[in-house]
Amino acid sequence: MIDPWLWVGVCILIAYTIEAVTGFGSLVIALSLAALVLPLPEVMPVLVPLSVLMSGFLAWRNRRYIDWPLLSRMILPLMLTGTLVGYQVHTGLDDQLLKLLFGLLIVWFAGRELWRLARGVVSQAHPVWLSRALTFAAGITHGLFASGGPLLVYAMAGTELDKSRLRATMLSVWFTLNASLSLLFLLQGSLIPALPRTLTYVPLLVVGILLGEWLHHRVDETRFRQIVYTLLTLTGALLVVHAW
């Protein structure tokens, strides 16, 4: 039998390469692929700290673009509260049910993005109450799967933020939430045993970023996104079938 953690290393390399090309999704992609061979509760304490390193570095580099009022008044309070709720629910759920719910979330998100790319649909602004509800729900999914991105991206649809401000603000969200999750893993007792394995994957993170930077200037981003979302749709469907 091949060590499943070798597969996790491949997933990390793929995920962070994609993140460097497109600017999104490293943790969602890595977790969805890794969950095919390992339980989510076993993988999350390894992958979440890696995301802290990358999002923290990028958030610091782009700190001048962060929308602090939006971050501090709406996103972080709702996301942090939702994350605590999701984390509490997560500890009482069976791994197969977690994989099923995670797979459904991935299929919904990736399928929706494929449909938008195919139709050329432009996101419309949500009412304030809906954006707040979706942001809170994104926090819950982050606590459950460390993957609040799909719902938060949907919650921020139609926002008046330009691309640079939205990206920097979202990076700050992921840094804060994943640092908080890492603290919860520490208190739970799962972070320290996972740290040696996490540290062995740091070079793959660096290689993925460098490879992604190289690819970023050589591939068509729209076509690349189509490939990524198709991969996510298939992976989510496999998770659903595996967990059913």
Rank of each mutant, 00 (worst) to 15 (best):
L58M: 09
F175S: 05
V240S: 01
T17M: 08
A118F: 08
M156R: 06
D94V: 12
W7L: 07
P193M: 00
F102G: 05
L130P: 08
S131C: 13
Q88V: 07
T198Q: 00
L134C: 13
F109Y: 15
F185N: 00
L13C: 14
L80P: 11
W214H: 07
L238N: 11
N178C: 03
L177D: 14
C11T: 07
G23L: 14
T230I: 04
I140M: 01
V206I: 13
A59R: 03
F136A: 02
R112K: 15
A118E: 12
H126E: 07
G236S: 04
L97Q: 11
L186G: 09
M1R: 05
T22Y: 08
L144V: 11
G149Q: 03
H216R: 12
L114D: 15
G158N: 03
H90R: 12
G148S: 09
L40K: 01
A179I: 04
W5G: 02
V240H: 02
G148M: 01
L78D: 02
K99E: 07
L33E: 03
G139L: 09
M170Q: 02
L234C: 06
L36C: 09
L134F: 15
V240A: 00
V207E: 02
L205S: 05
Q96V: 10
H242G: 10
L13S: 08
L101P: 14
P196Q: 08
G25S: 03
L97G: 07
G111A: 13
L181H: 10
L114K: 10
A133I: 07
N62E: 12
R112H: 14
L186H: 06
D3T: 13
W129L: 14
V37Y: 05
P203F: 11
K99M: 10
M54S: 05
T200G: 02
R165N: 07
W68H: 04
W214M: 15
W214N: 04
T169E: 14
T141A: 06
A243L: 01
V43F: 08
L152S: 00
W7M: 13
G236L: 07
E113W: 12
L93V: 10
Q226N: 11
G120L: 09
K99Y: 06
L53Y: 12
V173M: 05
L27G: 12
P49V: 08
V173I: 00
R63P: 04
R112T: 13
S131L: 11
T233E: 04
L50R: 12
P49A: 02
H126R: 12
I209S: 01
L80S: 10
S180I: 00
L6W: 15
M1P: 15
H90M: 12
L184P: 15
V122K: 07
G111I: 09
T83C: 04
M1E: 15
D94L: 12
G25R: 00
Y154N: 01
I192F: 06
D220E: 14
L166D: 08
S32M: 11
L211V: 11
A35K: 08
L93Q: 01
R223S: 06
V28P: 10
